[in-house]
Design a protein around this nucleic acid. Structure first.
Lengths: 346, 346
DNA sequence: TTGAAAGCGCTAACAG
DNA sequence: CTGTTAGCGCTTTCAA
């Protein structure tokens, strides 16, 4: 029932009184001389019959699918935005992008990857989270080009390129801003569950602390999701009576939670506690006070990622990509620190 | 470079010293008698050679792809969660789900749909937003089964089934709860941009108001995203000095924004203003006070959606689906109201 | 300019 | 139990 003998180019050819080769040529606007008349006839026949190209047959024949696969750890927050930006970029370049979420489950992710390769996607875009580099390499052993995004500390040779967000520098800068605004106790608040995108941020944190003109109390604090007020208690203990103290949070939602837990514990923001988040979530502008955060250049990251991948697929260099990467296999995209109410700005 | 002459079943057959038909039978664990010895030999040969099935060839041959397509208006919030739940359900039933976001752009959505049909997905899951029913019908004119989700007021015959979240009843219940807690002014706060999922909620709102034992001031208020305090001002004007007044917001983020705008305007929550959101976003439990919201049964909605679709693809009824739908073409999945701090509960 | 025909890799009768 | 073979729908030489 679901497939009522679909229309093929054979039908169109018969209807138009030409050969299937001609139909194929017309429909794909190939670079061959075609008479105006034939073109009209074929196109008329095609839509009279309601013909729709069979992409599998086409891909099978011309050894190429024009499909790209994007593997995400989840659809939430940043990843969804990145996926949409990639879809756009891919479309603009004649590719179609299928998106999959591993749901933070390595096994599911493995199956997605395998399936994508069975479908012979022309290229792959993968994040650097759930699966291990080894498992990934094992899967992508064949020649399918892959570009990684936000994959910190992966071997350089596993992909044609890696496009990371430079949270490291962003956090480093945030440390300086907090210091300038009077914080002499600064903490990095990480997620309750370990996460591979945490280390680079903390690294930037330490680097920022090291570059400060004076001494500050600092620490890595893991958030307790069951009750963030417990975490606030821990911060107060560490900060002693240094005020304001500052926290830089793993992401905006955590920043939100921590800020309100602080307020609930009687702290005034930003006078006594300053808060910095990451991702520039829509909500950070609507809280009270508004939250200082880091803006992510989705389009820029997506464009570089997709163009890099396509240049590898076509095996011909893309000048713009080359310029951005400077020949290296990894590019760090800068994030932009937006100072707002939670750090005493505007 | 990207495709180094891939291994086919011909290679495997040669390596194992059997025919391609046998290889195919072994690899697909078809329902044919196979000797243990042959199975071992073929499997050994296959992974010695690093064989990977070519899904296009297989799909082309057996007229079926085992692929489902999911078309979303965006990856954000609820939609991402629904997508992950659908991926899981599909996998459990031997299907693979490709997800696409129309990014709220009808034209992009059209192209996604067309491409999906070119790929001959076995079934389609679509939301009821960006594209019009007419445009959709026009595209899906061939026999590909489609199930809709959250498509309010679409023609019944366009899809094999529709699975909606019953926000209508949820909002209706919320109105009653607010009334019980003392609100004599209750407002529905919608998004600044019109949205097709708004009307059913407002309908539930009106129905709730109508069912109340006494009179209340009520209105539909459109939120002003540029500054939610303006919206709060409007509410104060409408509510006069009736306290507490209650607001039911289009979604949790809006509830967040409105609640903090209210607090910023000097209102105490829940004593003077009560707030209800929708979607049970993770953050609603970490604000201060916590926010009353409606929990969405993702898995339930996804399971029904996917099973309904698959039963149509296979053209054989699924008892569980039939029971849920009672033979009708639309099912409303109840959402669960979770009472929290913003309405004076726990 | 157009068409005939040989695949692309796999599946599914059907024959042995 | 295993192999032969005819497609699936489209692309792409190559010859006409």
């Amino acid at each position: 029932m679901s497939k009522p003998k679909s229309i093929t180019i054979v039908d169109v050819a018969r209807e138009a009184g030409v050969s299937t080769a001609t139909v194929s040529n017309v429909l794909n606007r190939r670079n061959v001389p075609l008479s105006e008349d034939i073109i009209r006839r074929v196109e008329a026949a095609a839509d009279r019959l309601g013909y729709r190209r069979n992409a599998m047959a086409a891909s099978l024949s011309r050894q190429r699918t024009n499909e790209l696969g994007l593997l995400l750890p989840s659809f939430g927050g940043y990843f969804g935005g990145f996926a949409e930006a990639c879809e756009r970029e891919a479309h603009e370049r004649g590719y179609h992008l299928s998106v999959f979420s591993g749901s933070n489950d390595p096994e599911l992710e493995r199956r997605h990857l395998d399936r994508l390769l069975q479908r012979r996607v022309d290229g792959l875009i993968c994040h650097g989270l759930a699966m291990s580099p080894e498992a990934t390499r094992e899967i992508v052993r064949d020649g399918t080009p892959m570009v990684l995004f936000n994959a910190w500390s992966w071997p350089e040779d596993i992909a044609v390129g890696t496009v990371n967000l430079d949270f490291k520098s962003g956090v480093e800068e945030a440390v300086h801003r907090l210091y300038e605004r009077g914080c002499r106790s600064i903490f990095y608040v990480g997620q309750h569950k370990p996460n591979t995108s945490d280390p680079p941020r903390y690294e930037g944190f330490l680097q920022g602390i090291a570059g400060l003109p004076g001494p500050v109390t600092h620490a890595y604090v893991r958030a307790d999701a069951s009750d963030f007020r417990v975490t606030v208690g821990r911060l107060l203990q560490l900060a002693g009576d240094s005020r304001p103290f500052g926290i830089i949070c793993f992401d905006d939602l955590l920043a939100f939670a921590m800020m309100y837990a602080g307020i609930a514990s009687g702290l005034r923001v930003p006078e006594q506690m300053m808060v910095v988040g990451m991702n520039n979530h829509y909500m950070t502008r609507y809280s009270h006070p508004t939250i200082t955060s880091m803006d992510i250049p989705y389009k820029d990251q997506a464009e570089l990622t997709v163009r890099w991948l396509i240049s590898a697929i076509d095996d011909k260099p893309d000048e713009w990509v080359l310029e951005r990467s400077g020949g290296r296999s990894r590019v760090d995209i800068p994030v932009k620190l937006l100072m707002r109410g939670s750090t005493g700005d505007s």
